[in-house]
Design a binder for these strands. Structure first.
Length: 426
RNA sequence: GGAGAGAUGGCUGAGUGGACGAAAGCGCCGGAUUGCUAAUCCGGUAUACGGGUCAAACCGUAUCACGGGUUCGAAUCCCGUUCUCUCCGCCA
């Protein structure tokens, strides 16, 4: 969330930003709530001061002074309790309101509401020309016995699948390839929990429970299945103070991602484009709280994402995501969309976001500069290295041959073990 | 899952109802001193919130895992939660 003081001092900018983002929230009450909070704190502090003084006098007081002091102490206790309750209520309202306000936006982010308002920064790679009718990944997978949708549905329902045969090797290869790249880039790699506490989800900006939620939650617990390792990677530093000279922290994680995809019915539901579970290698960053630092990190993540797809020899474009299409935490966001012949268009394969201090404030992740007083909230960033299912679609569809076989990208062959995936005999 | 022990500042660790934001040591910062890769001595060294200020200084409040309770008063007593450790069970 945004800083309360910042919101109050920049009310018009915040309101304009909400409009650009397509977020409907009445920001106005925040000023009076802020003032109410301040007054309650001032009054509470004064009462607590008297309370301390009163109770401090009691041990030294004479026997006939004591009853009056104790009576006053009791009275003060009640008054303090009342004030504290009021303060709690006001702060809850403030928190609820603040949580609805999205992050401020990079001045260069395109303003718009729809996906189409995002701006293509560049297109890289050759879109393949086929001298035959190209298949989509579902048909290809069927011909090559790579994905078992029927068993997936039977066992877990629509949106689940079994990868089989070379598809399994391809998944492992993609993960290995991404990890190898990230290690070379100086990331600390992790495998993260696939579940996380609701408070961590909330800190990152997810709403774990409720009608519209994208999150699977575990009953009778405060745990939810993670939608991305962004949650668990960001959560690592919850309530931590990091030495500023250790920044940026470059951490990556492999996790499964679980999404209910509520409300997404009918939208690209074919195949493994939109599924309830997939494997992903995610980059995360904690940087110094300066835009120069987080911008630089953001560009680095984007470069790595591009290099990963260039290495796979897949055509893609980079989108500068418009104000209306980014999440609440985002200050700026780029997507990579790979060409997917089966859809006859581009499909999102990665995404990278600079959240500035928006997530850090709620997570309580700060940094301290040695020798300087105080702490500041760090900037956080996240980006996809490889989302396995999406990358697999792009590989299968772009690398398909007239005979239905699929050429394995050269960089993955050492793990897949073959140059080409062909139909099984028999 | 069962039994027990524990959680104190950057770290180690004392503190079992009032004089405790908290001893001591280490670390760190500043200074003094000594001809010697260092030692010694002195001083300082948390964070958040509110007020205050151009900015500081400063003032107040809170914080001894977290949340509640008892009490005039809680690091200290009681309850719950989380986490850590030890032993047992189970298990990959």
């Amino acid at each position: 969330m945004l800083d309360l003081q910042y919101i109050c001092d920049h009310l018009e900018e915040v309101k304009a930003n909400c409009r650009n983002r397509g977020v409907q929230v009445d920001v106005s009450p925040i000023l009076s709530l802020r003032d109410q909070r301040r007054e309650l704190i001032t009054r509470g502090d004064a009462l607590r001061k008297e309370q301390k003084e009163t109770s401090g006098k009691i041990p030294k007081a004479s026997a006939d002074q004591k009853p009056a002091l104790i009576a006053r102490g009791k009275q003060l206790r009640e008054e303090v309790a009342k004030i504290e309750e009021e303060q709690k209520k006001v702060e809850e309202q403030l928190y609820a309101l603040q949580s609805q306000i999205p992050n401020m936006t990079h001045p260069d982010s395109p303003v718009g509401r729809l996906e189409e308002d995002s701006v293509t920064v560049r297109e890289v790679g050759e879109i393949p020309e086929f001298d035959f009718e190209p298949k989509d990944h579902v048909e290809l997978a069927q011909g090559l016995d790579l994905i078992d949708f029927e068993s997936g549905s039977k066992v877990a329902g629509h949106g689940f699948y079994y990868l089989k045969n070379e598809a399994v090797l391809l998944e492992l290869a993609l993960v290995q390839y991404a990890v190898e790249k990230l290690v070379a880039e100086g990331f600390t790699i992790t495998t993260t929990p696939d579940l996380a506490r609701d408070e961590v989800l909330e800190g990152i900006g997810y709403i774990p429970r409720g009608d519209e939620t994208q999150i699977y939650s575990v009953e009778n617990s405060d745990l939810s299945l993670v939608a991305t390792a962004e949650i668990t990677l960001g959560g690592m530093m919850k309530d931590e103070i990091i030495d500023a000279d250790k920044l940026p922290l470059k951490i990556a994680g492999i996790s499964h991602c679980f999404r209910t995809e509520a409300g997404a019915h009918g939208r690209a539901t074919r195949g493994i484009y939109r599924v309830h579970q997939f494997t992903k290698v995610e980059m995360f960053g904690f940087t110094a709280p300066e835009l120069s630092a987080s911008d630089e990190y953001h560009q680095m993540i984007l470069r790595i994402e591009e290099e990963i797809f260039q290495g796979l020899e897949l055509p893609y474009r980079v989108l500068d995501i418009c104000t209306g299409d980014m999440g609440g935490s985002s200050y700026r966001k780029y997507d990579l969309e790979a060409w997917m012949p089966g859809r006859g268009g581009y499909g999102e394969v990665t995404s990278c976001t600079n959240c500035t201090d928006y997530q850090a404030r709620r997570l309580g992740t700060r940094c301290r500069t040695p020798g300087k007083k105080g702490t500041r909230f760090v900037h956080t960033l996240n980006g996809t290295a490889v989302a396995v299912t999406r990358a697999m679609i792009a590989i299968l569809e772009n690398n398909q041959q007239a005979d239905g076989s699929v050429v394995v990208p050269a960089v993955l062959r050492k793990w897949v073990g073959v140059d080409r995936i062909t139909a099984k005999k028999g």
